[in-house]
């Protein structure tokens, strides 16, 4: 019997997350975990994101169904929470929408994709937990996510990786034709928003 192992929560910026549309399971089993593969080859069964709540709306017909937009320096995460995400829904419902003092929230959740009538694939997060946090936590998340994204980019550029990682990278490259420079630029944009650092001093060329 295989031991249940909780999947780690990947750190991915909103831009990259929104540009992801490849989801898969590793086995036919009904309960096999589902993954979203991102352009930099993060294999996500779960993500941890921190961002600013810019909009929330109950779009449910009969029961509550909340859609929220959560922004990081690179883009926006779409978050959908309904009755099966009771805890997260309760938190979302209770948050005050205030353009002058928006909430910074930390979300742990599962990636989810659906296809629109036009054939576009929309990637969103189904939250397991939502928690209001402070700006310091947001900054830590940006740095954490920058480091983990750069690490994936480095592997993509030809660092030695294990067989399993190699397969995942090959899959991501084939599906997305990932341009490493493009995602380095994304990381650079994210880091530039941290005010301690002057905007001119960042040289990403070596990363």
């Amino acid at each position: 019997m295989q031991e249940f192992r909780r999947e780690s929560a990947k750190r991915v910026f909103a831009q990259e997350f929104r540009e992801s549309d490849l989801s898969f399971k590793e086995s036919e089993d009904e309960y096999a975990p589902k993954y979203l593969l991102t352009p930099t080859a993060a294999k996500c069964n779960r993500v941890f994101v921190v961002g600013t709540l810019t909009e929330k709306e109950d779009i449910g017909m009969e029961t509550e169904y909340w859609r929220a937009r959560v922004a990081d320096p690179t883009g926006v995460f779409l978050v959908y929470a309904g009755q099966f995400q009771a805890e997260a829904t309760k938190v979302l419902e209770g948050l005050e929408e205030n353009i002058d003092e928006p909430s910074i929230i930390a979300i742990t959740g599962k990636p989810s994709t659906y296809e629109t009538q036009d054939g576009d694939i929309i990637t969103s997060i189904r939250p397991e937990s939502i928690q209001v946090v402070d700006a310091k936590t947001r900054d830590s998340w940006i740095i954490d996510t920058a480091m983990q994204t750069m690490k994936r980019l480095k592997s993509m550029e030809g660092g030695e990786v294990s067989e399993g990682e190699g397969d995942i990278i090959a899959q991501a490259k084939e599906h997305y034709s990932t341009e490493v420079e493009y995602y380095k630029e994304m990381v650079s944009i994210a880091l530039k928003t941290l005010e301690e650092v002057g905007t001119e001093t960042i040289d990403m060329s070596g990363i």
Binding site: W141, I143, M147, L191, I207
Partner: peptide, 15 residues
């Protein structure tokens, strides 16, 4: 507070 790591993150090419 990871913010303190930013300098080494940017300077250290082999971060």
């Amino acid at each position: 507070n990871l913010a303190g790591e930013i300098d080494s993150l940017l300077q250290d090419h082999e971060s």
